[in-house]
Design a binder for these strands. Structure first.
Length: 597
DNA sequence: GCCGTTTTCGGCCCGACTGTTTTCAGTCG
């Protein structure tokens, strides 16, 4: 088999699919409406998948994705094998190529893009955005049918915002979204007209990255609330203000959508806007089968020809009405939660209060490490652990650098460190101390410390910190070899991804899961927001396989230990219960798992 | 083009807001 060796990323495939959907909308939206939806849904599924389509196709594992049937599967396979697909190309070639770059500009969709490109003769896909800007500045857009002064100035501003990086696809990390929303909620609560306020959307689902912020307000006076909202001091500008909703851009460049609703259907509103798009579509299909049409205003229901609308202040009632269990926000991504809720078989998800310790803690202990060390002393980290009511804490500094020390020096550093830890054990009775280390797995699969060093360690975390570009199977072998040391118990940040910076290295997770299960190893959910690693859909796989997970903060300072909640949310998104998480277990169980003597 | 508690055909979620319109098209979530 000859493979196209340019290797196509999920992002690229998703973009092609979105372009096909746009082409269908332009060619004849009515005729191709459902193909269009299908391509859009598939694009979302591909983009949000933690597994690379490229890998799945090469291993013949492209199955089980809702929204990717036999037709689209073939197109994906062709894209990956040949770098293009004749069927998709024939659809794309029906519209001018200059249409597609314009789709990245907020407020420009397929129809407008097509009108602009054809009416203004913008024929160069590489320069189309610049050319459009020129035409707008020359006042040519107002002259087009269905465009006016406002559309022209809107286009100019949208291009400007796009250039600043505020395109349709830019997303921020969860902590930033969380912080901005907290400030806004504090502001909103000061208004006497605000009865209830909550976040919705991907922020409430605790998605590791968030695009826009969605906020719900229950009120008796929506005009007053909308007015108050648009006067938010930390705003750049108001995007829109309607009778029920309004959107602003904050000074940090984040779009915030506010929806108001009377108290009686507040539950319907937050249910409607919390679920991911596919969760909502799926849920409304289930509702239709049960005779309900649900929206943010309530559940419409026909009884003896008469229509009634059921309104709920509590969103739990929406699920109850449909005969389902309540689905926690973190699960509302259409990854099987609807079926489980219908069957009343949803797992009881892990909670922050279940966490009893943290295995991945870096300190300022002078270990002369291969990577960055922590800011705070071991004692300071222990004090923080005490304030979090932890039962145990493991110090997992990076191993001393190999290049700058002899084996003997490393041995002596670890010996002294162990003595220090033994002292701390005596002076800190309320938190059990575990002596660990985060050890690099070298490219050849060996660990970056000499074997005799292990006598000073209860167990080690192993991880990849160099030579990321490796063949998938070789990387998998490397990891498994590293993990097979009897004292290696936890694989840290298993995919190595950094959100917004780099995709992870490629691994065969199934093989690692199999090895971990057989050899009693744990995989880490790294709570560091930029990592959020394992990704949620892979956590789900690990949970289904019955392999142990840990949730660790990878703290390099005492305040980082507060990031635990992000790891717990991530675990919840992966359907994990407290039984799946090692650091939700007692010290004795942990000691048994880690084989601490 | 997908999919199945009406299963291999015939359906496919629901609504707000804006701008350019006199009743709607386009975009967005």
């Amino acid at each position: 088999m000859v493979w196209y060796d340019g290797s196509m990323t999920n992002q690229e495939i998703a973009k092609i699919f979105r372009n096909v959907a746009a082409a269908y909308a332009i060619i004849d939206e009515k005729k191709h409406y459902f193909q269009m939806l299908a391509y859009q849904k598939a694009a979302d599924v591909i983009q949000n998948s933690a597994s690379q389509m490229d890998d799945l196709v090469k291993n013949g594992e492209l199955t089980g994705f809702s929204g990717i049937g036999s037709g689209l599967k073939e197109h994906i396979e062709e894209l990956i094998k040949k770098g293009k697909s004749s069927h998709l190309d024939s659809i794309l070639s029906k519209v001018p190529a200059s249409v597609f770059p314009l789709l990245e500009i907020p407020s420009i969709g397929p129809k407008k893009a097509y009108k602009l490109v054809t009416a203004l003769k913008l024929n160069d896909p590489k320069k189309v955005i610049d050319q459009l800007e020129e035409k707008a500045k020359e006042g040519k857009i107002t002259k087009l049918e269905t465009f006016g002064e406002k559309s022209q100035s809107d286009i100019l501003r949208a291009i400007e915002e796009f250039r600043k990086g505020a395109g349709k696809t830019t997303r921020m990390l969860l902590p930033m979204a969380f912080e901005i929303s907290q400030q806004l909620i504090t502001y909103l609560k000061k208004s006497p007209h605000v009865v209830e306020v909550n976040t919705m959307g991907s922020l409430r689902r605790r998605s590791p990255t968030v695009g826009d912020l969605d906020i719900a307000v229950a009120t008796k006076n929506k005009d007053a609330v909308l007015d108050y909202f648009t006067k938010y001091p930390n705003k750049m500008r108001v995007i829109e203000k309607g009778t029920n909703t309004s959107s602003i851009i904050t000074s940090s460049g984040t779009q915030v959508d506010l929806m108001t609703v009377p108290v009686e259907n507040y539950g319907n509103l937050i249910q409607h806007f919390t679920g991911g798009k596919h969760h909502n579509v799926h849920l409304r299909e289930v509702a239709l089968r049960k005779g309900f049409s649900i929206s943010e205003y309530g559940a419409k229901h026909k009884i003896k020809g008469k229509e009634e609308i059921l309104k709920f202040t509590d969103e739990k009632k929406v699920y109850e009405t449909l005969g389902m269990e309540y689905i926690p926000p973190e699960l509302r991504e259409d990854r099987g939660e609807i079926e489980l809720a219908l069957a009343h078989k949803l797992p009881k998800l892990i909670e922050e209060k279940d966490i009893k310790g943290d295995f991945h803690i870096h300190t300022s202990y002078p270990i002369e490490p291969s990577h960055d060390m922590g800011l705070n002393s071991m004692q300071e980290m222990l004090d923080k652990a005490k304030s979090l009511k932890y039962e145990y804490l493991a110090f997992s500094d990076h191993n001393p650098s190999q290049s700058q020390h002899t084996k003997e020096q490393v041995f002596n550093i670890l010996k002294r460190r162990r003595e220090k830890i033994e002292q701390l054990k005596k002076s800190n009775k309320s938190v059990r101390v575990i002596s660990m280390l985060e050890v690099d797995i070298l490219p050849n699969g060996k660990l970056a410390i000499d074997d005799k060093c292990f006598e000073y360690l209860d167990a080690v975390i192993v991880s990849i910190h160099s030579v990321f570009k490796m063949d998938k199977e070789k990387m998998t072998e490397r990891i498994i070899k590293g993990l097979s040391h009897p004292k290696a118990k936890i694989l840290a940040h298993p995919t190595g991804r950094l959100l917004g910076k780099r995709a992870g290295y490629e691994i065969n997770l199934d093989k690692i899961i199999e090895f971990a299960k057989k050899n009693k190893k744990a995989l880490e959910i790294n709570a560091w927001p930029e990592r959020s690693d394992l990704p949620d859909d892979l956590i789900k796989k690990v949970v289904e396989a019955g392999v142990m997970l840990t949730i660790d903060t990878d703290s390099h300072a005492k305040d980082h230990m507060d990031l635990m909640k992000y790891g717990v949310w991530q675990a919840r998104r992966g359907f994990a219960t407290k039984h799946d998480i090692l650091n939700a277990k007692s010290y004795n169980e942990v000691a048994e798992f880690l084989e601490i003597k």
